Simulated scan of single mutants.
Amino acid sequence: MPTAAVADDFPSLPTAMSPGDIINSESLRVALSVPLDTGPFPANAQRIVYRTTDTKGGPTTATATVLSPIPPWRGSGERPLVSFAVGTHGIAPHCRTSELIQTLLTYRPPFDISTEYEAMFIGAMLAQGIAVVVTDYIPSTYLITAAEGNAVIDAARAAQRLPDAGIPARGPIAFWGYSQGGHAAAAAAEQVGSYAPELDLKGSYVGAPPVSHLNLFRYAEGGMSLGAGGFFLKSLISSYPEAKIAVDEMLSDKGRQFLDTTAAQCVGGAMLSYALQPSNSLTKDGRSMAQVLEADPRTAQVLEEMMLGRAGPTAPVMLVTGSNDDLVPPADPRRLAHTWCSIGATVDLVDLQLPMVLPGSIIGHTVNSPIVGLTEGQRWLNDRFNGVPAPSTCA
């Protein structure tokens, strides 16, 4: 199936459109679905193109997958909706969830490979009768805070407006994400109070969010994740043209090739292409990328503005980190929890105390997601939808 239309296909949006309005939709077949008399188990799926807001406050579009579960919701009240923000997939079109959810796996020679690893979490929600909408994000906005948050929020608005989806128009919602998805869910939790106050947000599950982009670069230096740095730099210059010259001046010819290569790869291919390489191998002057980005005022100011913690969530949050996380520095989510608590948010900090295994391999970062997400996270989510008072670790 061809990729659905995205932002570039709608250069001029109708002025009457509001954030969350649907531009078009098409049916999708979810991989491993089972046909039943009542519909394909676990869910009917539609890909939508919806109006949202870019980093500069202008209108743009994103795609998302709306999943309407076949099982009934057996909890309290109306069927709830989760706006699900996926972890790092890549910024190339074939890496989007709306593509991968149809096949679960993509491969392009010689070794660009990715899978829809979020399917187990999405499936657990659908099996309980929770509707799910999964944004593909605005194109080329990897870890761009405002754009990611808006895409998550407007995906929820769009799902509630989709005809015949069986999702209540003003029903309860939650945000969910881990890693890049945790960053997006945190951004949405901070932005929703001013951007979409009409939404009935019950809570946000925020797993291992990159809080500071500079700290992320420093902490992950020399590990498996340099390729994802290409996703971010490409997104940075796409969303903030004022940073383009600074990034171009930073990179060597090899670094510019790095941007072009990773922009066409999914996360598996980008990791394999640049695993264990130091970032200073791609800069002109031999400094690390974090050192150059921090020293240049053209990029330092943008990165400061994009840090999480500049506003407080208006609904309860479960915030997850772990001492074994070898991708996102665990000190940053801990500080974010303190910041949110200090401005009156209700935060349940889950801080796993596990040993580090093969630092730089991202094993610790990866295993923490199912350890919490398939156990405490699902229970916490159900409790929010069932009206149970939210726990808090705020002092």
Score class of each variant (00 low, 15 high):
Pro139Cys: 15
Leu259Met: 07
Leu104Ser: 10
Met17Phe: 06
Pro14Glu: 09
Ser114Cys: 11
Met289Gly: 01
Ala186Asp: 02
Pro59Ile: 06
Leu126Ile: 03
Ser273Gly: 05
Leu272Asn: 13
Glu118Lys: 15
Ile343Phe: 14
Ile167Arg: 13
Gly309Pro: 14
Gly77Pro: 08
Ala315Trp: 10
Val350His: 05
Ala124His: 11
Asp154His: 14
Val206Pro: 04
Ala85Glu: 02
Leu251Glu: 09
Thr60Phe: 05
Ser33Gln: 06
Asn324Leu: 01
Leu327Met: 07
Leu216Tyr: 03
Ile23Met: 11
Leu336Ala: 00
Met306Ser: 11
Leu282Pro: 01
Thr53Phe: 08
Ala390Ile: 07
Pro316Val: 08
Ser279Leu: 06
Asp37Gln: 12
Ala64Cys: 11
Cys394Ala: 04
Phe10Met: 03
Asp383Trp: 07
Ile371Ala: 06
Ala124Arg: 13
Asp351Lys: 07
Val206Ala: 03
Ala64Gln: 13
Ala189Trp: 15
Ala124Tyr: 02
Gly268Gln: 04
Val86Lys: 11
Ala158Tyr: 14
Leu272Gln: 09
Arg334Cys: 01
Tyr107Cys: 05
Thr314Val: 10
Glu148Gly: 15
Pro241Ser: 07
Glu376Val: 09
Thr55Lys: 08
Pro329Gly: 01
Ala187Glu: 06
Ser12Lys: 11
Lys284Ile: 00
Asp154Leu: 12
Val132Arg: 09
Glu26Asp: 01
Leu272Phe: 05
Asp325Ile: 03
Ile237Ser: 09
Ile237Thr: 05
Ala295Gln: 00
Leu327Tyr: 09
Arg287Ala: 00
Ala300Val: 00
Gly286Tyr: 01
Lys244His: 01
Glu242Pro: 01
Asp112Arg: 12
Gly149Leu: 04
Gly203Tyr: 09
Asp200Glu: 13
Arg310Glu: 02
Ala220Cys: 10
Val388Leu: 11
Tyr142Gly: 09
Val328Ile: 10
Leu352Phe: 06
Thr60Arg: 15
Ile173Tyr: 14
Pro2Gln: 11
Ala185Gln: 10
Asp21Pro: 14
Ile343Gly: 03
Asp296Leu: 00
Asp248Val: 07
Leu276Gly: 02
Val247Ser: 01
Ser194Trp: 04
Gly322Cys: 04
Pro69Asn: 11
Asn44Trp: 06
Ala390Glu: 05
Asn150Ala: 11
Ala208Phe: 01
Met250Cys: 02
Ala64Asp: 09
Asp326Pro: 12
Met271Ile: 08
Asn24Gly: 07
Val367His: 02
Gln291Asn: 00
Ser18His: 04
Ile173Asp: 05
Val82His: 06
Ile153Cys: 10
Leu104Thr: 10
Ser194Lys: 15
Gly312Ala: 10
Leu143Trp: 04
Val388Trp: 05
Asn386Lys: 12
Thr135Pro: 15
Gln128Tyr: 01
Leu162Gln: 10
Gly309Thr: 11
Leu308Lys: 15
Ser342Gly: 14
Gly222Thr: 00
Val267Arg: 09
Leu251Tyr: 10
Ala290Asp: 01
Leu303Glu: 00
Val134Arg: 15
Ala155Gly: 14
Tyr50Phe: 08
Pro42Cys: 08
Met250Ala: 08
Gly360Met: 03
Met250Tyr: 00
Ser76Glu: 05
Pro168Val: 01
Leu233Glu: 00
Phe231Arg: 14
